[in-house]
Structure formats: C-alpha cells, structure tokens
Amino acid sequence: MSEILDLTCELIRRSSVTPEDAGCQALIAERLAGVGFAIENLHYGEVRNLWATHGSGGPVLTFLGHTDVVPAGPESEWTSPPFEPVIRDGMLYGRGSADMKSGVAAMVLALEDFVRRHPHHDGIVAMLLTSDEEGPSIDGVRRVAEEFRRRKQRIDWCLVGEPSSQSRLGDLIRVGRRGSLHGHLRVRGIQGHVAYPDKASNPIHSAAPALAELASTRWDEGNEGFPPTSFQVSNVHSGTGANNIIPGSLQVSFNFRFGTASTADGLRERVEACLQRHALDYSIVWDLSGEPFLTPEGDLRNAVNLAVESRCGMTPVASTAGGTSDGRFIAPLGAEVVELGPTNATIHKIDECVGVDELEQLPGLYLEVAERLFSARGQS
C-alpha cells in the first residue's frame, strides 16, 4: 500500500465524529515533529486544534484542514463499515475519505516532502487543523483566528484541502465563499379555540404575507465574483399538535447566502423593515456564521492554476459557489485563500468514497503549489 493510502486509511479508522478528533491530530503532530515542525496545540473546550510550523519570518503558507467528520448515519445502509476503509473498484470507501481525511493526509505528505527538499527555506510552511469544522465552528478555526489576530500571526497564503473538484481532480477550485446569515424569528399571537378566532390572534396568518414577501424579494443582482443573494426558509414550527387550537406563537428559521453585492447589516435591516411593515409582534435572533470573501488573481491562484495544469492537464474553473469552509475565518487575516481537493460527489453521503488515482496525485499537487509559491519569491 502506498504511503498516502496508508495514512488516509489510518485516519479513516479513527471515528472522529465532530467534535471528536480521536487521535488524528496526535498522529499528524508526531509525523510533522519528526521532520522538524514546531507543534502547538490550541485546544478550546472539546475542540482540538493543531498549529504546526516550519521555518521563520515570511512569507507564510498555511495548509488548512479538519480532522472531524459528520456522523455516518445508519451503519446498516453502508456497503462496508464506515470506519473500516475498503478499496473497491478503484475507490477508497469510508466516512471522511473525501471530506476530508484524504486532503489532510496529502497535505501532511506534501509538507514532509517540502521540508526534506528545502530544509533551509525562507518563510514558514504550516498546517492548521481543527476538529470543529463539521460542527458549530465556534472553538475551531474561528477561535484560532481570534488568537492569531491577537498575537499578530501573519498568513499570506492559505490552501484549503476541502473537496472542491466536480468530476475529476483539479477541474474546479474555490477562490471565495458566500457569506452565511441565519435568522431565527418568533412571531407572537394569542392562543385560542379555532371556533372563536375573534378571541385569538393567529401568528401563522399574520406572518404568512411577510414570509411570502421575503421569499419573493430580489435581494441583489450579484456581481462578477458572486451570484445573487439567496433567501431560504429552513424550518417552520407552530402549534401544540392539537387541531382545535390557534397557536400562540410561530417560529421560523431562515438563511441568507450572500456575496459582496449585499452586506449582513443591510440584509438584517431589510428583513426587519418588512416585518415592521406587516405590523408583526416579533423578536428575532441573528447569527452571522461567515462574511463573504474573494481571493483575486495573485500569487496563490497563479500557483494553483499552474500546478493543476502541470499535474492534471487542465485549467481549473474558479468558483465561489457551494457552502462555507473554514477559509472564511482565515481570509479576514489578510490571506489569499484557495480551496483545492478531490471530487465531492459523495461527501456526507452513505458510502462516501474517493478515487485511489486522485488520492495518489494529491500530495504531489500540493507540493508543487508550495514549491511554485516559494520559487516565485526566490526561495530555495
């Protein structure tokens, strides 16, 4: 078995369901320490974060990943046990095989190889890992970024190993992400008997026109980097379960995914103006889980494009679509951020898998990105 397959399988065997790390970071820290990396554990509550660095000064290239995975779901629905890696028909199966233990393993091997080839490189090559990417993302990279800001830790380039590719390795890279704004709305009414509506106030009826307006609003037109903002209701709850009671309140959860054509403050103001126009008795709690970011053409995108062209034989499509990633916490530190990883067709699914051929290519791809970045700066 190849070194990349061996390490990926070892990580998959560790059932690190968020926020558990299950020893993944200790295994990686031991490997990186063995080639001269300085190891720092930044643990907050149940969350494990690993910051491993080699070198000093600048520039600083950080490989970013996570060791936690989503729950496997019913094990009976898996063709083979989710935490027992199995190769079938050229695919490696197991929870986290694509998202993102293959990427983590490949980044570890690339860093080991880089410092062996360039033991006296200028600047810093680093790895940042968390066990809180698939969870609330509070004590993971978000918290680490706050610490980095406090200590003025520089990051110039951040390569995220999330599974970005669509059909084959390298066909798509993420050069930014939309922001994510959640709203948790409570509309108050007056509970009563359905036969006596004059003695009650139905919050479902009063809120429905406002929700219809919000759902039909064109929030912006997007721009060159991002599609138009989307609004989606994700949960609605009201009533006691009885069919003869007008409910006393309505709870609605919704989400905005937005680019730089709108701001979180602007979206909040427009929503609350709508609720007030409809004279609702309401309260609302907002949760901004990430601002949008976009990495323009520059050193990192150029190095990634050239490495993909060299290793995969194509020019990747640059995209800002999809969900969010921990890159959203690193970009505000001033870093260029690009996501490059294996295909994402099976992430979070039963029988998650990654192509063995893609896996074998990943360490060399990441290594070439690093070498191109430092060679462009005259490093050796």
Rank of each mutant, 00 (worst) to 15 (best):
D287E: 04
N49P: 03
D265V: 13
G140F: 08
R377S: 11
A105I: 03
G259A: 09
Q232K: 12
H205D: 15
E358K: 01
D357G: 12
A279D: 11
S310D: 11
Q166M: 15
G239T: 15
L367E: 09
W157G: 08
V308D: 05
L42I: 10
S201Q: 15
S131M: 10
V60H: 10
P85G: 03
L367N: 00
I245Q: 14
G323E: 07
Q25S: 14
R372T: 00
R150C: 04
H278D: 03
L211D: 03
H193V: 06
T229G: 06
C312V: 10
D68A: 13
V35H: 00
V369R: 10
A210Q: 07
S97H: 04
L280D: 09
T8N: 05
N244A: 15
V187S: 04
I12C: 09
V144N: 03
A376V: 13
L333C: 14
D287W: 02
L267A: 05
L5Y: 09
S216M: 07
A242F: 11
D351W: 12
A33F: 02
S97M: 07
L42A: 04
P228M: 02
P363V: 02
F148L: 08
R174V: 02
P332D: 11
I138D: 05
G355A: 14
Y44G: 13
R257M: 12
T53I: 01
P292N: 14
S15N: 06
A318D: 08
G170P: 06
D156C: 14
L333F: 15
G327I: 09
E360T: 13
R268F: 03
W157S: 04
I28L: 13
A72V: 06
T79E: 11
I4V: 11
C9F: 07
V141I: 07
D89R: 06
V236M: 07
A33V: 02
V47D: 09
A105E: 01
R95I: 03
A29Y: 00
H237P: 02
A72H: 12
E133M: 09
S325C: 10
R218W: 09
H205Y: 15
V337N: 00
V104P: 00
M100A: 02
Y282Q: 07
L111D: 04
A98K: 13
L340P: 00
V187M: 08
E40N: 00
Q153D: 02
R186E: 12
G103N: 06
E77A: 15
A29H: 06
G323W: 06
E30S: 15
G45E: 01
A261P: 03
P342K: 05
A318E: 12
I39L: 07
K152T: 10
